[in-house]
Amino acid sequence: MTITPAPPPLLELEHVDAGYGPFHAIFDVSFAVEAGRVLTLLGANGAGKTTIARVCSGLVVPTKGSVRFAGEELAGKPAYVYARRGIVHAPEGRSVFASLSVEENLHLALGRGRDKADVARRVSRAYELFPRLGERRRQLAGTLSGGEQRMLSLSRVMVDEPRLLIADELSLGLAPIIVDEVYATLATIRDAGTTLLIIEQHVDHALGIADDALLLAQGEISERGDALQMRAAVQRMLTNQ
C-alpha cells in the first residue's frame, strides 16, 4: 500500500455545541466519518443522538463549532443546502409527507436537479424494490401503515444514491422480520459505497452493520472506537447497571 495524503473525511464535526432554545443538548462533540464508512451513535435516550443527527443535516444550527462536509463548512447554512450537497436524513418517527401521495413523495425527494426521464427511472426502480408501494402509488402516504411508510422513506434513499445517509431509529415500531429487511437494505446501500450515520436502539443491529461507533452520555461523547471494541464497552455499561 502506498502512502498518499489522506483526503479530508466526508463529514467532520469539531467542538459542536447545540440545543433547543434555553435547553442545551450536546456539548463539545467532535468526530469525523471517512467516505464509505458506517458510523453508529449509541447511548441512552436523552444522550443527544438525535440532536447530533439533526446538526449533521442542518436541521439544528450549532451554537458553537464547525460542521464540514467534503471539506466545505456548512454550519449555519439552511438545511436544504446540506440536502443539495448529498446528505439525506431520514428523521425518527414519521418521515414522509402524509398529505402527499406515494408518487408525489418520491417525486419531491428525487426531483431536484435531475431530468424528468432520470426521475421517472428512479421512481420505477423504487416500485421494483418495493412492489407494495407501486400498488399504492396514488394513495396518500398518511394512510399507509407504519411499515409501508418506512418502506417509502427507505425506497427513496435507495434510489436517490446520497453521499451521506443519516438514519435515525429506522427500526422503531417495526416487527423483527421487517427490521431484518431494513438492515439488509442498509447493507446494500453501504455496499454501494454510501457513507452511513446510524442511530439505533438495537445495539446488535447497529454494531452488526457499523465500522465505528460513538457512545454518548449526557450530550457528550464518552467512548469511541471500532464496532468490535464498542460491543465490549456497551456490554460493560449494561452489566454495570
Binding site: Y80, V88, P91, S95, S99, L108, R112
Partner: peptide, 15 residues
C-alpha cells in the same frame, strides 16, 4: 404543498 405540511422535512428534501 410539502412546505405547508413540514417546512423542515421539505428542507431535508433539498427544498
Amino acid at each position: 404543498r410539502a412546505v405547508v405540511e413540514s417546512s423542515r422535512m421539505a428542507e431535508l428534501n433539498g427544498v
